[in-house]
């Protein structure tokens, strides 16, 4: 299943500037693994050994995956994933 992932500005250096990329997978974890195969280093920016990093949020549609099944959240056709990192500039 192909999913569109919105890439926030701080991570676009890893996606050659792309602000949206396609990835395949039945779960969020699968999609991240697919992203890692295409854009090495991105998984480490999103996850640590415990799961999604504390200063990163991943939304499937409008839902934060922390309130779903976390990285095991299953995806449906048409789902879009958004990554919202903590940023500090002003």
């Amino acid at each position: 299943m192909e999913t569109i992932v919105r890439i926030p500005t701080p991570l676009r250096t890893l996606t050659q500037g792309a602000d949206e990329v396609a990835a395949v997978g039945a779960t969020v974890a699968d999609v991240i693994a697919d992203l890692e195969s295409k854009y090495p280093g991105i998984k480490d920016r999103l996850c640590d050994e415990k799961g999604v990093r504390k200063f990163i949020n991943i939304f499937v549609g409008d839902e934060d995956i922390r309130f779903l099944e976390g990285l095991k959240t299953e995806l449906k056709n048409g789902d879009r994933i958004s990554i919202v990192p903590a940023i500090a500039g002003g």
Binding site: I87, A88, G89
Partner: peptide
Amino acid sequence: HSASVRWHAT
């Protein structure tokens, strides 16, 4: 809270 970096704001 309001923050901005490059093209992105939260």
